[in-house]
Design a protein around this nucleic acid. Structure first.
Lengths: 127, 127
DNA sequence: TTAACTGCAAATCTTTTGCACAATC
DNA sequence: GATTGTGCAAAAGATTTGCAGTTAA
């Protein structure tokens, strides 16, 4: 894979944010720095970067994919109040153990999506 | 909500199948019994029936939603060989207990998607 | 009768793709 | 100079929606 300014900007943008931006968020944020940039290029680069393991894709049914700079294993909480996606680090051992017990299943991987109220909205509520 | 032949056919179709059909699968299967049926009507009825709790929606990133007649709580295994979606009944207690321990999180619900090889494909493999 | 439902087609939203041109190595 | 990447615009796929006509209660 060879260098491109567009890919560099996409990667930097994702790495600089903790809010799980969509392809369009990223496009809007960097297009000023790169006149003529096209959304298709952002998509192509995001796909490549995810495939290379430089970032992760977060898929939540019914909405555009988001992109996450954090490579370490973790899960996501979709806030039912404000729509934000928050990182959550759960202890996966209970799940892994339970799945390992099921020798009738050949599970390669799984994804867990959480729905609830994010920490920011909870703080607002309790005031 | 009042009776309609279209809704009746959609519901019957889902209830008669264990293969998690998509809206389009359902449309193709029943349109002979209902000349002039439109895909939009199938979508509208599926949405209504899910909302009424008469069936469940199964969302897997990157593909069309599927519909599931089984109302009881369970999970889904997406087969990476053949693309089928298989019902899986897991012991959720370990997950629920782990989540309950995390009093810093306000989780309302969660969804678990499994990826692996379905029972049918595993049988074929082992021959 | 009237509120809910339908068919149709167009619109929406997200993502991909074909192609001619440009940039990298 | 070969190959990879880009911009543009069109296409694709899933789903929703506006509207005028139809149907159940």
């Amino acid at each position: 894979m060879r260098y491109s300014r567009q890919r560099e900007l996409v990667l930097r943008q994702v790495q600089s944010r903790c809010d799980h931006p969509t392809a369009d968020d990223i496009y809007l944020a960097i297009r000023d720095e790169c006149p003529g940039l096209s959304l298709g290029t952002v998509y192509r680069n995001l796909n490549g970067l995810v495939e290379m393991g430089r970032m992760r894709r977060v898929s939540i049914p019914g909405m555009a994919d988001r992109f996450d700079r954090t490579l370490m294993d973790h899960d996501h909480l979709y806030c039912t109040k404000c729509g934000k996606v928050e990182d959550v680090h759960l202890d996966k051992e209970p799940i892994n153990a339970m799945l390992k017990d099921r020798k009738d299943l050949a599970i390669e991987r799984y994804s867990l999506n959480l729905y609830g109220v994010c920490s920011e909205c909870r703080e607002k509520e309790s005031c």
